[in-house]
Design a protein around this nucleic acid. Structure first.
Length: 482
RNA sequence: GGCCCCUUCGUCUAAUCGGUUAGGACACCAGCCUUUCAAGCUGGCAGCAGGGGUUCGAAUCCCCUAGGGGUCACCA
């Protein structure tokens, strides 16, 4: 089998969203699986909508996800010469022709087709212009486009690795434009020229391109290029089943990053959208290596998948808990810094403390931002606790009395003088230069239903009072008659 | 509207050549654990879009209907 070469070819018209990221992921997985080459190409042939400033963001998102590419980025805007040569070749071979129809004229035809409820097809008006006629039109100030001369009969078959043979009637494909009057190539043409130049073996892209594929095959044939294998991935839809867009909330990779999602969680979640790793289907948490080892286009679904963040969030919590603590801590820094809890570039000591906080809080937070949100008590005395939480644990029958006993034990420690529970906590706080809020956090959040705080044991462990923890546990067990 | 693709729990999905009590995961509910919140463990709820065929037997093959999506640009 020839070398596998695949490409991810976004157009720089916005941020990398989850649909594009999934396409990139599948290309990446396929390339790695087959020991192939993953290429990044920027499809910026449209000067109107392409914005250079998006390119860096696109690459940054890809890097963050860990989808590093082997070649590129290549830019279509820097390959214009090649498209012109290819188009001229077609013109010479009479496989393409110049068309002088104005947009207004075309619009009229389109309008008519709409009225009749038909699809508009360019009628081929300029197919057989003589050089003299062309000269005249040019003299009249008309700037031509170049159209591909397409067959009127027969069919063009797309052999799709995911969908099988998809047949298109050539009679329904008109002589489409390959070079605009501006001299720039259209997508269908540029893409084919580039894929041939880069020797792309497999075109893996979203399903929305399926109906463009016969046009591209026609281009490739006219050019005499090899036709790559195609694989059209199912779409990713918003919860309301419509195409993903800004109004559906977080869809950009960058937004997930800002919300405190881990790249490995996003990648894991995305790979499950439209693909299933195993035959029994019970392993859903899988590291990148495993994804690569198991990946195959044959196991990609045909059905569009609805994207829904609940599972992603669950996965993120999993990776937060199971991940390497130092790494998670490092990734948490910007989130804690944003809350003013740590400095943006924390020193060793500050980082050490943060790591302790993270190790305590990652057991319950689902995202990094949620973790930072719930950790302010560790850094500030400026707090409020939920009175209902206080009441639940200190005033109510049963639980309250148990807590009282635990507090009694606390107070009996050499470091504590008799007093109320709150005072005991206050002393502990003072003594350890940690905020009272931090100590009361479990109370505060126990009722509000948000990310909970660490328990007393964890807090005491955090303070290095392992002996106290042991004594408390013993006491509680005795109290409960065990 | 034309063309193309698709249709298993609410969501992501499994079920190799037709024979399964249609499996798992997330979410939800309950129980256990527990000083709170989580986490963890156990259990539960919930699905083959509908209708015809073919067959001893269909989620699986064929047809029709319905529904969803994509695409019909001098956008990609």
């Amino acid at each position: 089998m020839a070398k596998v070469r695949v490409r991810f070819a976004p157009s720089p018209t916005g941020e990398l969203h989850i649909g594009g990221a999934r396409t990139a992921l599948f290309n990446y997985l396929f390339a790695r699986k087959h020991d192939g080459v993953f290429i990044l190409r920027i499809d910026d042939s449209d000067e109107e909508r392409s914005r250079p400033e998006y390119v860096e963001g696109l690459m940054e998102s890809l890097r963050w996800l860990g989808l590093d590419w082997d070649e590129g980025p290549y830019f279509q805007s820097q390959n214009l010469e090649r498209y012109h040569r290819a188009a001229n070749l077609l013109l010479e071979n009479k496989k393409a022709y110049r068309c002088y129809c104005t947009p207004e004229e075309l619009e009229a035809g389109r309008e008519e087709a709409r009225r009749k409820g038909e699809a508009y097809l360019y009628p081929g008006k300029c197919r057989n212009l003589t050089p003299e006629q062309e000269e005249k039109l040019r003299a009249a100030g008309r700037v031509p486009v170049v159209r591909l001369l397409t067959p009127d009969r027969g069919e063009t078959v797309v052999e799709d690795l995911i969908r099988g043979s998809v047949r298109f009637d050539n009679a329904l494909i008109d002589d489409f434009i390959i070079i605009k009057s501006s001299g720039l190539p259209t997508y269908n043409f540029a893409s084919v020229v580039d894929d041939a130049q880069l020797e792309i073996s497999h075109v893996i892209r979203a399903e929305e391109h399926l109906s463009n594929t016969p046009r591209q095959i026609l281009c490739a044939r006219a050019l005499g290029c090899a036709i790559p294998s195609y694989a059209h991935l199912p779409m990713i839809l918003a919860p309301d089943r419509s195409k993903l867009s800004k109004r559906h909330g977080a869809t950009a990779v960058e937004e997930f990053r800002e919300k405190g999602y881990l790249p490995e969680a996003l990648v894991n979640y995305m790979c499950l959208l439209g693909w299933s790793p195993s035959l029994s289907g019970d392993e859903e948490i899988l590291p990148l290596e495993e994804m690569i080892a198991r990946f195959s286009l044959e196991r990609v679904n045909k059905t569009a998948a609805i994207y829904d963040t609940e599972k992603l969030t669950w996965m993120n919590g999993h990776y937060l808990r199971e991940g390497n603590l130092e790494r998670i801590t490092r990734l948490a820094v910007p989130f804690f810094a944003a809350k003013g809890l740590v400095s943006p570039n924390p020193g060793k000591e500050e980082l050490g403390k943060l790591q302790k906080v993270v190790s305590l809080m990652r057991e319950r937070a689902k995202t990094l931002s949620e973790m930072a949100e719930a950790s302010s008590y560790f850094y500030s005395a400026d707090y409020e606790y939920d009175p209902r939480g206080w009441e639940k644990h200190f005033s109510r029958e049963g639980t309250g009395s148990l807590i009282d006993k635990i507090a009694g034990e606390l107070e009996a420690l050499p470091d504590f003088k008799p007093g109320t529970i709150e005072e005991a906590f206050a002393r502990l706080a003072q003594e350890t230069s940690l905020s009272l809020g931090r100590l009361i956090q479990p109370v505060r959040l126990s009722v509000s239903g948000r990310t909970g705080g660490p328990d007393f044991y964890e807090l005491l462990s955090f303070l290095g009072r392992e002996e106290t923890v042991r004594r408390l546990r013993r006491t509680v067990q005795q109290l409960e008659g065990r």
